[in-house]
Simulated assay, not measured.
Amino acid sequence: MSAFAFFGALELGLIYGLVALGVYLTFRVLDFPDLSVDGTFPMGAAVAATAIVAGINPWVATIMAIIVSAALGWVTAFLTVRCGILNLLASILTSIAAFSINIRIMGRPNIALLGQDTILTPFEAWGDPMYVRPIVVGVLVLFSAWFIVRLLNSDFGLGMRATGVNTRMVAAQGASVGFYTYFCLALSNGFVGFAGALFAQTNSFADVTSGVGTIVVGLAAVILGQTLIPGKKIWVAILAVIVGSVLYRLAVAFALSSGMFGLQASDLNLVTAILVAVALVMPKMKGKLQARKVSGGAV
């Protein structure tokens, strides 16, 4: 793998680390299967790209992308909490609607950002963009991870974590299960929209189809990371999903660039499916091996 491919995969892995953080909040913390991220990711890219082309400051455009994406997550929560729609179906409906909304936002299926200033433009003067951009993105991801760790370790975060474990207990304590659901889904999709905005600015385009398979990548990062770096502490789990995202992207880049097994760029979805399957099987295999060791020691 060339240095360009390595740092490109590292940068993309860090961007999708934000997606993994969002997926971790819904699937692990809230126990809510949210598939709306497939629509939130391109929405963040669409809002940021449209705003930047319109002459808005890139940082303001990125914040706008986060807010709009968070609003989409709020809609999913509304369909579930207030309308009583099954959470899985509610997120699918939101994701489907987001496709048309994204085209409305951009006015066309895609927007190019070539020649436009982005949040990375001022930092590219520090050195070779190939090395500088992953560092800048990494700092943004680490700041986001720090924010989530502080949130989940707070009293409010404890209530949100309890909602994912036992909603009846939370309701019995007088807390609002619906409020935690609204907040967590909005926060999760806000992070995914942030990732979409960064993706558009680092790749110089926003496309309405860029969110296809985002949920699979996020789940792969969460499962792979927590399999390789197990731990019950919040900061360990957050670090694990980011590392999982980076390792996942590096593995895909290595498999495609090395020509392993005759793979080509068109085989990306195949490689993704295989890696996700391996990540799902690894915890079970690890459990069986530990069980055998225990039984062998007992004998």
Results as ranks from 00 to 15, higher is better:
M1P: 14
S2Y: 08
A5I: 12
F6K: 08
F7V: 14
L12S: 13
A20Y: 05
G22V: 09
V23M: 07
T26K: 05
L30S: 11
P33N: 09
L35H: 00
S36P: 09
V37H: 12
T40H: 12
P42T: 02
P42C: 00
P42R: 02
A51R: 01
A51C: 04
A61V: 06
T62F: 10
V75L: 04
T76I: 00
V81L: 04
R82W: 10
G84M: 10
L86W: 02
L86C: 01
L88H: 02
L89H: 01
A90G: 03
S91W: 00
L93H: 03
F99I: 11
S100C: 08
I105M: 15
P109Q: 13
N110D: 15
G115E: 13
F123A: 13
E124W: 10
E124S: 12
G127R: 11
D128A: 15
P129K: 08
V132G: 07
R133G: 06
I135P: 11
G138T: 08
V139L: 13
V139T: 10
S144T: 15
R150M: 09
N153R: 11
F156N: 03
G164H: 04
R168S: 04
M169V: 03
V170D: 00
Q173E: 14
A175T: 02
A175M: 05
V177P: 04
F179G: 12
F179A: 15
Y182H: 04
Y182D: 03
F183L: 14
F183H: 05
S188K: 06
G190A: 05
F191L: 13
V192H: 07
F199V: 12
F199D: 15
A200R: 11
A200D: 12
Q201C: 07
Q201L: 08
T202G: 01
S204W: 07
T209W: 10
G211C: 06
G213W: 08
G213S: 13
I215M: 14
I215N: 08
V216Y: 06
V217L: 11
G218Q: 04
A221T: 07
G225F: 05
Q226P: 03
T227C: 08
L228P: 10
L228S: 05
K233Q: 11
W235D: 12
W235A: 11
V236H: 03
A240V: 12
A240T: 09
V246L: 10
Y248S: 14
L250I: 15
V252P: 11
A255D: 02
L256I: 15
S258I: 09
S258D: 11
Q264D: 13
A265H: 09
D267Y: 13
N269T: 04
N269F: 00
N269E: 04
L270M: 11
T272K: 03
A273L: 01
L275A: 01
V281H: 00
K288S: 03
R292F: 01
V294N: 10
S295F: 01
G296K: 13
G296Q: 13
G297H: 04
V299M: 14
